[in-house]
Design a protein around this nucleic acid. Structure first.
Lengths: 252, 252
DNA sequence: TCCGATTTGTACGTATGTATT
DNA sequence: AAATACATACGTACAAATCGG
């Protein structure tokens, strides 16, 4: 028996180089082998190496300087949670140095209001499922998520009971049970306080203190660019701090 | 007379395609011409077209589907302020539909504390310049920025007085006067309230109300990956809402 | 200051693979 | 099954930036 499907050559190369970075980087010399050297080491063409290196450069992991070479970005090595690409909350919590946990609050049927209908490209009043959960870092609440998706995605109403089998991510459930795999999202970044949203006071055990939260409003799309889930993620940035490498948008 | 220096062919193509998107997109048919068609239209090779399209796809402007074609991302068209790449505050304010303004508060000499020294890769106690400014949206404060940079960047102390000539961006000043062009940053995303930072109450005219702010901690680097400016940007997300297209980090 | 070596950037041609219709 | 369209990969050539002599 062999692998059903091997990933692309450049993706393999990307992982090899990423592994090379992780194991070889000593904090001092951040210069990587040249493209030609990588060609010889890994036995592939320069274009394959370049594809892999460009992907890494796009994520801010490395930098490429014409005439000089390719360098590990020490800043990226120290980044715990990347804002893009998105990973699972449970992974982010681990990356921040905490023990992850999840508390499923409830999931119930409802109907779409205007905002949700617009996000999910359905009609106002259409049936939706609302699921709420809290993520824990060392037993303490660090994120509160409300997910909305159209009931019509389910093949049968009974499917809803299977949601508990995919606790880590609603996306796994929708992928496995409904064949709708989320591949990207459109996120709006705002902030709120528990004074604005009383529900937060309860979930984050704020008592009388007013705290601020990062609110990520995410519309999640599948590979055909159809909306699958609308999510509101309230995040305590004392636990989860996102990092990002950003390019400056000067005209070229 | 001709252009002194033409940008790269693929960058030209990128702008052509971006222009095509902006002028031709009617909200309905979001399919773009095929790679081959673009080759003929623009008279360049397929690899050049692909380079341009891949750049646009990376920014989330378009999506590419094997076997189907290349499509405009309607979500991106409606995005006002992109989180990455970074643009100037004055531009972001305009994009959000407000009249931009700036209030320079003060700039004074100081010495680096541990946090700032670490960010700027200098020694604790080294001399730095601290500059504070407030950005206005329709005359109302929407962002408060504190910039720190090493005094040693200046060729002469008198340069400091010229900062007022570059009100839009400290980066322009440092590029023009010190030859240090900021090309990327490493940002940490957190939230704060004016209760945590009393200075915010004053600048944002909060009175007794407790409001939340987005805090972007940015270390800004030049093309040689040396830190240039450390910036703390306190943003009122009622005015400036960042948007981002994010890929999901499933393993491939 | 200039030249050459090194290294990445850009661009073309070509062929084949894979997903979609 | 065939046509379409993007993905991957190889080879090649030259341009542009960097650095040392």
């Amino acid at each position: 028996m062999k692998k059903i499907k091997s990933q692309s050559l450049s993706e393999e190369v990307r992982q090899e180089i990423l592994n090379y970075i992780k194991t070889s980087y000593d904090g001092k010399d951040n210069k990587l082998p040249t493209e030609e050297q990588f060609c010889e080491i890994l036995g592939v063409s320069r274009i394959t190496i370049r594809t892999a290196l460009n992907t890494l450069a796009n994520d801010g992991i490395i930098f490429r300087r014409q005439g000089k070479g390719t360098f590990i970005n020490p800043q990226a090595v120290s980044m715990k949670v990347q804002f893009n690409p998105v990973s699972l909350f449970s992974d982010m919590i681990v990356q921040c140095g905490y023990k992850p946990g999840i508390k499923l609050l409830d999931s119930h049927d409802s109907t779409a209001d205007r905002e949700i209908a617009k996000a999910l490209e359905i009609s106002e009043g259409d049936e939706i499922v609302v699921a709420k959960k809290i993520f824990l870092a060392d037993e303490k609440p660090c994120a509160f998520c409300v997910d909305y998706f159209p009931t019509s995605l389910l093949k049968s109403p009974a499917d809803l009971k299977l949601m508990g089998e995919y606790p880590n991510s609603l996306f796994d459930f929708l992928d496995a049970r409904c064949g709708r795999r989320v591949e990207w999202d459109r996120t709006e970044i705002t902030t709120v306080t528990n004074a604005d949203h009383p529900e937060l006071t309860e979930h984050f055990q704020c008592q009388k203190r007013i705290k601020s939260f990062l609110l990520l409003d995410c519309i999640n799309f599948d590979g055909n660019d159809r909306p699958v889930v609308y999510a509101q993620e309230y995040i305590d940035t004392n636990y989860i701090k996102f990092n990002s490498i950003r390019q400056k948008a000067y005209q070229n």
